[in-house]
Design a protein around this nucleic acid. Structure first.
Length: 506
RNA sequence: GCCCGAGUGGUCCAUUGGUAGGAUGUUGCAUUUUCAAUGCAAUGGAGCGGGUUCGAUUCCCGCCUCGGGUACCA
């Protein structure tokens, strides 16, 4: 059997294995659509620990079925962040394995084949409804306040032969599953007991998009089956679509895995953890010098406990004591202060030699020091001035008190200043050039940004320099931002906004 | 709107049919030239209303609050 052949995953001995026997196989399935997220690490940790506890396998699968938003650089970043944490996977896109490929965009033939099976069984059908019709439908449902939303099954009773002919003639269409309209589906959740849901509540979900890519719902069921996944440990956000997944397993005649839905990480205000209100990128925690084992321990305490009086534990201890009865289902607040206290504790526990090794490795690695030296060289006169000169490239917050007045720009109100910074923060996330955070990309984006918003480059650039460095004089702005790094820069701009919003005088 | 989930100090987690414990946070004291660290102490809690019970935070019902879903995103 080839490692990466999509041809015959169903022949795989692993794929055919029943979930009742043998060690568990679990997976995390991140979507490469942005920065590596702490939520991925959180779910990954529980999957990893569960697998190790029972001598099973932990698999990494890339869910890149969203062609528009997925990117190779994001996938790369996710892999490297998870590796930093030490959650090693037994099978994955980079290490291979018997059930590959582990990237969904490379398994398209498999989904197509399985969808045909469903259509032939009469369990799925082609739908030719246009986006316009669907939008109008949704609008109408909203206005009617019936409480019932979702697709109206307009194409469900089309003659299959006719539908096939239309499709072969090139008419654009999707494929939908034929959800039962009566009865109920029970989701047995290992953490929450049986969750009941009337089938009538679920509509005919799209399983194959018009671009030939599967939706998550189809891909995750097909892959979990063919990869022999026995336990699906994922976030609470999936509970409501799980009945559809169970129906799909049923339609295929496959055994469904055991489900466990963990609570979602939250902001201080209990809303779902978001980058608007919290640093959520694993890169942030890595770059600011959180210890990976500390972050893992902290994530572990969010939902799991060893015993009443011990919350500091290593991965090995978590594995040793892991049991679902010790996992809680509530959505925990991700408390930065407590994480930092843990980290402080762990730093103090290190020997000086160990600490030196960590700092050298993480903070003063050769490439970074050389890049900083390149910036410092034209601007320092004594070697010893190097450290003070580059100090603002390190650490989290900078002190804005000495430069507060410099944020005042002629003919601009304070609201305009904080406003433009907020918009900037928003747009660097969405802009292709800015997202990678290279000096060139940032500059191209920023110049265009100024034009579009009718601000002088001089004004915006001054604000950005102040916000990211807390100084009026620094190396070239975009080199500086790039070297500070995306997460540190983003955090400082956010903090500058808060500082300005709080300021009494303007 | 409708469906689903969750509610123990501010936050994370433990515990129990007999009024709750640790961590973090906050405050104070000691120590330190100062700060940090450390030590000691204090602060602070079962969402609300019914029911069952001698007794409920724990079991049951209703409500409330928060969260998730309701996509050709995952």
């Amino acid at each position: 059997m080839t490692v990466d052949g999509p041809q015959s995953p169903e022949q795989s001995s692993v794929g055919a294995k029943s979930k009742g026997s043998g060690p568990p196989r679990v997976r995390i399935a991140p979507s490469p659509t942005g920065d590596p997220h702490v939520g991925t690490a959180y779910i990954g940790l529980f999957n990893y620990v569960f697998a190790r506890k029972h001598g099973g396998q932990f698999i990494l699968r890339i869910e890149d079925t969203d062609q528009v938003r997925s990117s190779a650089s994001s996938e790369q970043a996710i892999l490297s962040a998870l590796r930093w944490l030490g959650l090693d996977w037994d099978e994955g896109p980079d290490v291979g394995g018997p059930c590959g490929p582990y990237r969904q965009s490379e398994r398209l033939e498999l989904y197509k084949r399985e969808v045909e099976v469903l259509i032939d069984k009469g369990a799925a059908y082609r739908c030719f409804c246009t986006k316009e019709r669907l939008d109008a439908l949704r609008e109408q449902q909203r206005a009617a306040k019936t409480g019932r939303f979702g697709y109206d099954r307009h194409c469900r009773e089309l003659d299959p032969a006719e539908a096939r002919a239309r499709a072969e003639a090139g008419e654009p269409h999707v494929v939908r599953m034929k959800m039962p309209t009566t009865g109920e589906t029970i989701v047995p959740d290992g953490l929450r007991g049986n969750i009941h849901r009337d089938n009538a509540e679920s509509d005919d979900q799209v399983i194959l998009k018009s671009d030939g890519f599967p939706t998550y719902h189809l891909a995750n069921v097909v892959d979990d089956h063919h990869m022999g996944i026995t336990h699906v440990i994922r976030g609470e956000e999936w509970i409501s679509s799980t009945p559809k997944h169970i129906v799909l397993y049923d339609m295929f005649g496959w055994e469904a895995p055991q489900f466990y839905h963990l609570g979602l990480l939250r902001n201080q205000d209990k809303s779902k953890l978001s980058k608007r209100k919290n640093p959520v990128s694993l890169d942030y925690y890595r770059d600011l010098g959180y210890l990976p084992e500390t972050l893992l321990n902290f994530l572990g305490t969010l939902g799991f406990s060893i015993a009443s009086d011990q919350e500091r534990f290593g991965l090995d201890e978590m594995i040793e004591h892991f049991d679902w009865s010790r996992v809680s289902a509530g959505g925990p607040v991700f408390d930065q202060q407590k994480l930092e206290a843990f980290n402080a504790d762990d730093i103090r526990a290190l020997s000086i030699d160990e600490l030196y090794a960590r700092v050298k490795d993480r903070v003063l690695d050769e490439a970074r020091v050389k890049a900083l030296l390149a910036q410092a060289q034209p601007r320092i006169n004594l070697l010893d001035e190097f450290i003070p000169y580059v100090s603002f490239f390190f650490g989290g917050s900078v002190d804005y008190t000495p430069v507060l007045a410099k944020f005042r720009i002629k003919k601009r109100t304070r609201a305009e200043v904080t406003g433009i910074l907020k918009v900037y923060l928003d747009e660097i996330e969405r802009d292709e050039r800015a997202r990678a955070f290279t000096a060139e990309g940032l500059e191209a984006f920023s110049r265009e940004f100024c034009q579009r918003h009718e601000w002088k480059a001089r004004e915006v650039f001054a604000l950005l320099r102040l916000a990211t460095t807390g100084r009026t004089a620094a190396p070239s702005l975009f080199d500086t931002m790039a070297l500070c790094g995306k997460d540190r820069t983003r955090r400082r701009i956010r903090e500058a906004i808060v500082t300005l919003d709080r300021g009494e005088s303007w």
